[in-house]
């Protein structure tokens, strides 16, 4: 990795971090209204459920019905993790053990395929097409391209320039596009657990 690419990627990372920071500041600057419902369960256990059992594909009717779509999402996000791991490890790529290299190639490649499949689904399926915004299509395409180039670059270093460009673009896009849902996921699941845990809907609470 040349110094120029290092500067480009670090600068993109700084932009991403600043953007995420600004979004978090705005979110946490909003009021946090107190819950007024009668306590019928445990908010703590609800939060625990929200991040553990409640995430399992068999825990919800929706994911049982759409198991393939759910798994496609899981594989896609595992690919994203591999893509960013690959980006972080790029300076040391030549000295990496073959097992690490092939693992990144495999996970990023499968993630990319899942991403492109998701993009096709958004165009083909009527309901998905209705709810999708141009940002959704752009973001999924960008991240899928990032994963494709990640797999290609860790397979053959001649693809590195494309990988770094896609990586920089993805980093900058995080706070600006739909990719930012990764920031809000933790908050959303936390609030879900608090809300339903308090009401005793989730969290394994016995009722009157």
């Amino acid at each position: 990795m040349t110094a120029v690419w290092t500067i480009v990627l670090v600068a993109s990372g700084v932009v991403a971090a600043a953007g995420v920071g600004l979004r978090l500041r705005w979110l946490l600057g909003r009021p946090c209204r107190p819950e007024r419902s009668r306590v019928a369960g445990s908010p703590g256990r609800g939060v625990l459920y929200a991040f553990t059992w409640g995430m399992m594909p068999w825990a919800k009717e929706s994911t049982r019905i759409h198991l393939l779509a759910y798994l496609r999402g899981i594989v896609f996000h595992a690919g994203i993790a591999a893509g960013f791991l690959g980006l972080t490890l790029s300076p040391w790529a030549p000295g990496m053990p073959a097992a690490v290299r092939w693992l990144i190639v495999a996970v990023a490649l499968i993630g990319a395929l899942a991403g492109w499949a998701g993009l096709v689904a958004r165009v083909v399926e009527r309901s998905l097409r209705t709810v999708s915004t141009p940002d959704d299509l752009f973001s999924v395409a960008l991240v899928s391209a990032f994963l494709s180039t990640a797999a290609a670059a860790w397979w053959d270093p001649r693809w590195s320039a494309a990988f770094f460009i896609a990586g920089a673009a993805t980093l900058i896009a995080i706070p600006l596009t739909k990719i930012r849902h990764c920031i809000y996921f933790v908050f959303s699941r936390y609030f879900f657990g608090l809300f339903y845990g308090r009401r005793g809907v989730v969290g394994g609470v016995q009722h009157e």
Partner: peptide, 22 residues
Amino acid sequence: SLDRRLVAALEVCARCGICAES
């Protein structure tokens, strides 16, 4: 209306459509 819970709900949706049948 924009408190933390509402902002999170507005921002987090990935529009995967899995919620339809529920």
